[in-house]
C-alpha cells in the first residue's frame, strides 16, 4: 500500500447523499451509581448535563435518570455546534449494560431492513425498545467482536436546516 493511501495523507471520501447513514452521533455510557457518575464527568471533564426529554427516547425514572451531556460547545438542542465532537448520554446500567455508540442510519429505509443487512452477516440484535407514543425508532446491535451500537432512524421531522444535517452538496 502506498503511503499516499494511508491516514493522514489521503483525504476522506465525499458524502454527497442527503443522508446521515453511518454517522456516529453520540456515546451512551452506563452508570451504576448516578451521583458518582455525575460528579466524575462534570468535575473531571466539565460536562454539562440535563435529563433527556421524556417520550422521545429511552424511559427512565427520577431516581435513575437518563442524562444528556454536552462535552463541548452545543446548540440549544444539545447537538454539538462545532465539528469534531459529540454529546454523551449517561444511562442506568440496567438499561444499557455496556458502552455503546448512538449511530444514525438511513431515514429512507425501514429500520428492520437496515438491521437485516447486519444480521445476515452474523451481527446480532441485542434489544428492540418500543415506547408507547414514542417518536423514535431504534435497535441495539452488536458486531461479531462485541461492539455495540444503538441504531437510530431519525423521524421525518428533520427539516435539513439543522447544522448537523450537512453533507457534501457539490
Amino acid at each position: 500500500m502506498s503511503k499516499l493511501d494511508t491516514y493522514p495523507y489521503r483525504p476522506p471520501k465525499r458524502y454527497t447523499k442527503k443522508s446521515l447513514h453511518g454517522r456516529v452521533r453520540g456515546m451512551m455510557i452506563p452508570y451504576d451509581d448516578y451521583r458518582r457518575a455525575v460528579l466524575f464527568y462534570s468535575q473531571v471533564f466539565g460536562w454539562d448535563m440535563m435529563r433527556v426529554p421524556q417520550g422521545v427516547f429511552i424511559e427512565d425514572s427520577d431516581e435513575r435518570p437518563h442524562l444528556m451531556c454536552a462535552t463541548g460547545p452545543s446548540q440549544v438542542s444539545w447537538e454539538a455546534s462545532v465539528p469534531g465532537h459529540v454529546w454523551a448520554q449517561l444511562v442506568a446500567r440496567e438499561r444499557v449494560p455496556k458502552v455503546q455508540t448512538f449511530t444514525e442510519v438511513s431515514m429512507d429505509v425501514p429500520l428492520a431492513e437496515t438491521v437485516k443487512t447486519m444480521t445476515d452477516r452474523g451481527w446480532k440484535v441485542v434489544s428492540r425498545t418500543e415506547i408507547d407514543g414514542d417518536w423514535a425508532d431504534f435497535v441495539v446491535v452488536e458486531d461479531p467482536d462485541g461492539n455495540r451500537q444503538l441504531l437510530w432512524k431519525c423521524p421525518s421531522s428533520r427539516t435539513w436546516e439543522e447544522p448537523e444535517a450537512g453533507y457534501d452538496k457539490d
Binding site: 447537538e79 462545532v82 454529546w87
Partner: peptide
C-alpha cells in the same frame, strides 16, 4: 482533508 468532520455533531 485533515480527517476531521466538516459538519457538527458526529465523530
Amino acid at each position: 482533508p485533515n480527517w476531521e468532520p466538516s459538519v457538527p455533531s458526529f465523530i
